[in-house]
Design a protein around this nucleic acid. Structure first.
Lengths: 254, 254
DNA sequence: TGACATATCAAACAAATGTTTTAATTATTT
DNA sequence: AAATAATTAAAACATTTGTTTGATATGTCA
């Protein structure tokens, strides 16, 4: 007897299992990462057999690649980099949109949150699946941002300066996601969900624009690049005192 | 017969194994993270038996906690937050030192690099060992930074603004470590080791100081906080076309 | 030297996990 | 309806991995 027809939740039973696997895998991978995720847990959530992943996707890794591709596509479909601004808008306004979209892609409470979570892990522990995404999505986005920054900075294009400023902008965006754990523990009052996007995007945009507009002001301190570091001053080491030598493990029976 | 005395590399054989375990564990944990690291690999590098970790530390987790404590202590001993500035120096100068120390702690090519690598992973996947570190090291450092920022911003202390600016500063520092993978692939020419610290610190300091000095300038765009988002515009989804239904796995024999 | 605590080692254990196998079931086509 | 292909299911497999065990060796101290 067909169990599916009894449960009565499947419109077409054709590749329903496959879809549910993808869905469940998205949750699990986002929550625990590629390596920590188990195909058993994925199949359990999908209501499928343990062998289902291998049957439908070949192996765990291809399933993961599929999930990454899927979540990335959905995230960028929903929040393209220049969401809601005209093509001829001034670069400052485009930058605001860029930042806002970036944060939305990370903080959206829907299933596209997966993208942010998975990307966070890919940063620390990249898998093969990152390669394609890098060329297809990340590099074009990086180019786009550098273009905006160059426009805003004005004057003769200094590649290094443009790159560094782009880093500064992106870093502020990813920070709130990557360091979420730490931020939440240090500042429990700091909201870190979709409702936080507007204020955060506002701050990042204002901070970065103010910085770029006045980066070359002569009065700014800290702009002495050749400044040497008094390294020796703090290099004095404290000798570690010999501590208790008893084994730290569970007490042995001797 | 004593193998150690034959190999002739141990000054005092007392807790030499323990020390070597700690050293090897530092490498392995930094390289692969807590969960991916195997005690077998650690013991192999330490030239010890598989049981050594459990004998000397009880279990893998306590060993990890010990490694984190150790690397954190070394990193902050070598690079305290306000490395090389006088106590009565102006806040701008202190901020420069703060940023430089932060980067040095992350990029130092010695064994203290472990601290940065391990912390990166703790961010994404925190373990119990993070708790103590948070209160002992991170919170004081966060307070210190907020103090500096408040001084630099001047005027009436706006807690939220101070916090956001602190985030902006720290985010730029951790970015270069956390997103190392991506940065290196996008910009192979960007150096990301100890030699990069001075230029990076210089940029971050200049960028952030310029931002804070001119954050409340009226001419800065992007400071319209209530700006609504045209959400509906991009929400149109593309229907996925039904694709080839053949199983993706290894061909079955049927 | 002999007794006792400490340390090391090889082997085994137990649990987790990605994958495969074989059979049964369901869907599709002839 | 019969035959064939696609899918699901239960069990087993093979490997990895943290930990434990029991024996053996080593160092210390009476």
């Amino acid at each position: 007897m067909n169990l599916k027809s009894l449960s009565g939740a499947e419109p077409q039973a054709h590749d329903e299992t496959r879809r549910q696997l993808l869905e469940a895998a998205g949750e699990v991978f986002a929550q625990t990462g590629f390596r920590n995720a188990t195909v058993r847990e994925i199949c359990r959530r999908a209501g499928a057999n343990v062998a289902a992943v291998n049957y439908h996707f070949g192996d765990k890794e291809t399933l993961y690649a599929e999930v990454l591709r899927d979540s990335q596509q959905k995230a960028f479909e929903k929040y393209p980099p220049l969401l809601g601004v005209a093509a001829d808008a001034p670069p400052e306004e485009k930058l605001c949109a860029f930042i806002r979209s970036f944060l939305l892609r990370i903080f959206d409470s829907g299933s596209s949150t997966r993208f942010g979570k998975i990307m966070s892990r890919e940063m620390v522990e990249p898998t093969g699946a990152l390669e394609v995404l890098l060329e297809v999505r990340i590099r074009p986005m990086a180019d786009q941002l550098r273009g905006l920054v160059a426009e805003i900075l004005g004057g003769p294009a200094d590649d290094a300066a443009v790159r560094l400023c782009s880093f500064s902008i992106v870093s502020q965006c990813v920070f709130f996601h990557h360091c979420r754990t730490m931020i939440t523990r240090l500042f429990p009052e700091q909201r870190l969900d979709a409702s936080a996007v507007e204020p955060l995007a506002g701050h990042i945009a204002r901070f970065s624009l103010a910085a770029m507009k006045h980066l070359s002001d002569p009065e700014t301190p800290g702009s002495k690049p050749g400044r040497a570091l008094p390294r020796g001053a703090a290099a004095a080491r404290v000798r570690r005192k010999p501590a208790d030598r008893t084994p730290q493990g569970k007490r042995r029976r001797h």
